[in-house]
Design a protein around this nucleic acid. Structure first.
Lengths: 216, 216
DNA sequence: GCAAAAGTGTTTGAGGTACACCCATGC
DNA sequence: GCATGGGTGTACCTCAAACACTTTTGC
């Protein structure tokens, strides 16, 4: 008990909602808790903020520890601090949203590797703490802020079909769009370009593969 | 030194950016600091989060203490936690944005009343801590999220002229709009209605006064 | 040959933008 | 009577939405 203060201080953590896309479906990385409280439930990866570490740096550290990723999209969602969200002590958490293409995710490398798993955002398991509420807010944030260009550059794997891009956009925005209108819009935006390769995905015409144009 | 922890804990504060509109100009409430650090500089009103108090509740408390206001628009901007933003100890602050019509502001009633003052957002004084950065982010948030309906219902006084509403919208959005187009848009939105009164403001035709329609 | 997804243009309507003059008042 | 801001309508253009058929493959 080495650290004393005149007034009570809360603990501060960062939690990271790592989103990715698999086959047009939006997924989030969760860790199965091995300790009390909420043993056996799933939770966002996270941990305590070091005393001389900025919030964003702490978020990067957590992201790197859990996924091996050390670059990409990382944005603060906000602070969550209901007094009894954690039964151990008063814990205020600052939540970040990370977007990582599936083919750059290496969540087996994390320390809690055995119990890390991707879940479709539409089929979440029972979540620890207030993480269900946090994920609802994270999803709202994605819906409001993420446009097709962000999805193509930040969230899709290196190569993808236009239908996969459209499915992802529909999942995130919560709306359906017309195939021809969607592709027409992509032409004017100039955010994707064909790779020249095709992908065969079943008993039908092969789909042309695209990549995000690296502008910036 | 009554409160001890096994690991170092940061202090957590809430700061509130209280915005209002005076005569079409966007203003923010600042408090002149009387103590070290940053003595004499201006700062956002704020204070420590009580150990059993939610973040939002702490923001309401600060808002009430400084302005007497206990209802209206209050939204979290985010957490700011650079390790040396405060020389006393590690302090992480959670910032809230409040919108208060000028005619409901009673900032004389606050405890630090003598040194509370409204400043036009375009003419800020030297600010304490990282509050200049915080206010830039707050302004961006208002620009991105606040539409004309929000301005009319949350930020304008009980009665206002359409030109004042337009000036405020232009200040917040950072764009200029055409008078006729602006008023045409207001008609389709149905967010304001005439009060029947006029206001004389100089050597010209009197302006009709409007109020926000209360349609929740 | 048939099931299954890929790919491809045109028409229409709504909403945003550009633009100029008369009105009521104080001095 | 003149300076000052208040108040009003039309034409055009851009962009989003609606809409159907042919192509390529596996079985």
């Amino acid at each position: 008990m080495a650290y004393s203060y005149e007034y009570p201080h809360p603990a501060v953590t960062v939690d990271v909602a790592v989103f990715t896309v698999d086959n047009g479906a939006l997924e989030v990385l969760l860790i199965k808790r091995g300790e009390w409280p909420h043993t056996g439930k799933w939770a966002l990866p996270g941990g305590f903020v070091e005393i001389d570490e900025s919030l964003k740096r702490a978020a990067w550290r957590e992201l790197r520890e859990e996924t091996g990723v050390h670059a990409g999209y990382l944005e603060q969602l906000g602070a969550f601090g209901h007094p009894d969200r954690d039964p151990r002590e008063r814990v205020i958490t600052v939540v970040y949203i990370a977007l990582v293409p599936l083919d750059r995710l290496r969540f087996e490398a994390g320390s809690d590797a055995a119990d890390a798993q991707l879940f479709a955002i539409s089929e979440l398991p029972e979540l620890a703490f207030d993480h269900a509420k946090i994920l609802r807010r994270a999803r709202e944030r994605l819906r409001d802020k993420l446009d097709v260009a962000d999805i193509a550059t930040q969230l899709m794997p290196a190569q993808f079909t236009l239908t996969e891009l459209q499915r992802t956009h529909e999942t995130i925005s919560g709306t359906e769009s017309d195939k021809r209108n969607f592709r027409k819009k992509l032409k004017t935006l100039e955010i994707v370009e064909p790779t020249g390769e095709n992908r065969q995905g079943g008993p039908h015409r092969p789909a042309r593969l695209y990549r995000a144009t690296r502008s910036i």
